[in-house]
């Protein structure tokens, strides 16, 4: 590594240039006036909820929106009646998909749901072998929230067994409770703050449908690098 002194000096040089440059004020863009805004005032984005796409007021509307949005994104949403039904649904998925082995993490829902599958399990807690996980047919995780507005699943490195589990196997299955549904992105970020601040997980990810690309003639192909299938099992 460079010695401490050069590192500091490059930092100070850049910050000095920034401060020098900012001595001349710039106009605020657009129509809301030209008076300079103070730092850390009311966030202009704080009102985002009133401009972002509508989500509906009731839980039922939001749940319906989540389902339709996720479906449009080619994610599969299975609403089941109970915790026990999750187990059955997962078992059916395993047999339909002819799963040979799965990967999962320690968690109240994942432990319960995978307990009787009778398949070899690659577990992530305490570290795992990457090649072994790569060979798994499905990665089964919990999540922090489902986002109605965007059809997204919010996962973190703490809630979903690390960084790799939700992207390495070809099929990602998320087990979620209905009450984990939040209305929109502002609510999802508020949840992250409330749940974790200041000790945030090292990775926080919004997963919105299965992995995709349009890099060849802008034609949609699923499973570019991450999972080709995303199933949300919700009870």
């Amino acid at each position: 590594m460079k010695n401490e002194e050069t590192v500091l000096s490059e930092r100070e040089k850049i910050l000095a240039r920034v401060r020098e440059a900012l001595k001349i004020p710039a106009h605020v863009p657009g129509a809301h006036g030209t008076a300079p805004l103070p730092a850390s005032a009311h966030s202009p984005a704080a009102d985002a909820r009133s401009w972002l796409p509508k989500v509906g007021d009731s839980f039922a509307e939001q749940l319906a929106l989540f389902q339709s949005t996720a479906a449009e994104l080619k994610a599969e949403v299975q609403m089941v009646a109970s915790r026990d039904a999750v187990k059955a649904a997962l078992a059916k998925m395993a047999s339909d998909g002819n799963w040979k082995r799965i990967a999962t993490h320690k968690g109240e829902l994942t432990d319960f749901a995978t307990a009787d599958l009778g398949l070899p399990i690659c577990r992530t807690e305490g570290g795992y072998d990457v090649q072994e996980m790569e060979a798994c047919d499905a990665g089964i995780t919990e999540c922090d929230a489902l986002v109605a507005q965007t059809g997204s699943v919010l996962v973190t490195s703490l809630s979903a067994g690390g960084r790799g589990l939700s992207v390495l196997p070809p099929h990602h299955v998320v087990i979620a409770r209905r009450e984990q549904l939040v209305a929109d992105l502002p609510a999802a970020f508020a949840l992250v703050q409330k749940k974790y601040a200041p000790h945030f997980p090292s990775m926080i990810s919004f997963i919105t449908g299965p992995s995709r690309t349009g890099d060849i003639e802008r034609i949609l192909v699923l499973g570019a690098h991450g999972p080709k299938k995303l199933t949300i099992l919700c009870f």
């Binding site: 305490g126 490195s157 690390g162 960084r163 992207v167 997980p201 990775m203 919004f206 919105t208």
Partner: peptide, 20 residues
């Protein structure tokens, strides 16, 4: 409406995390 993965990274693997 949203791209498929929007991910925030706040550090290397933290204590208690399984990878990274």
């Amino acid at each position: 409406a949203l791209t498929c993965y929007n991910t925030m990274y706040g550090g290397p693997r933290q204590p208690g995390e399984s990878d990274g």
